[in-house]
């Protein structure tokens, strides 16, 4: 236990005499943690990152180019926004590329458990990267965000595959138009 009362007395005497101030502002806990996360980012060869401003580690893009599965040959861009409450709250992740996918809707919302209800502070940016990569290898029709795509994957895998291809080449699937996103 510290001798606070005696310290108070001291402080009282010191009052008025400005202490040597102007010390360097420290980085926030969120900033320290994301720096650590990023420095240890161990990207699979299908993924890369892009930082529009290298001084801003809180906003960046992740690019996934799957080399197998339905989405082989595509190039998908995700935006990451890391808030001041990281890692208590997960980063906000959106898919910027229009994709015909059971777990990604046309607004770019991504249904990945660790991005919402199952996020834990021990998880890192790397966990999210692997989670997103997994979505492309194993689309999960059980938890759909694009219900049409999910139903199709379950009922007619062949047709689903054709539609994924068409969307990636650029074209309409149903009433929705998809920009070309092949590498």
């Amino acid at each position: 236990m510290i001798k606070l009362f005696s310290l108070k007395q001291q402080k009282k005497d010191e009052e008025g005499s400005a202490r040597a101030g102007g010390s360097q502002k420290k980085a926030s806990a969120a900033q320290l943690r994301i720096t650590k996360d990023l420095n240890e980012l161990n990207l699979p060869k299908t993924c890369s990152t892009e930082f529009p401003d290298p001084d801003d580690l809180l906003n960046f893009k992740l690019i996934i180019c799957p080399d197998e599965g339905f989405y082989r040959g595509g190039r998908f861009v995700f935006s990451f926004k890391v808030g001041p409450n990281y890692p208590h709250e997960p980063p906000k992740v959106k898919c910027e590329t229009a994709v015909y996918h059971p777990n990604i809707d046309l607004e770019g919302n991504v249904c990945l458990n660790i991005l919402r209800e199952d996020w834990k502070p021990v998880l890192t940016v790397n966990s999210i990267v692997y989670g997103l990569q997994y979505l492309f290898l194993e689309p999960n029709p059980e938890d759909p965000l694009n219900k049409e795509a999910a139903d199709e994957l379950q009922s007619n895998r062949r047709l689903f595959e054709q539609h994924v291809q068409r969307a990636m080449r650029g074209g309409y699937v149903g009433a929705s138009y998809f920009e070309r996103c092949l590498k």
Binding site: K25, A27, N39, L41, S48, T49, E50, F51, P54, D55
Partner: peptide, 24 residues
């Protein structure tokens, strides 16, 4: 092994060198 170096200048974060992220 691969130190990533940043600092804070006038309250703004600045990345000095980060070897592990290609674009940075």
């Amino acid at each position: 092994k691969n130190p990533g170096i940043t600092t804070v200048i006038n309250g703004r974060n600045k990345t000095l060198y980060m070897p592990s992220i290609k674009s940075i």
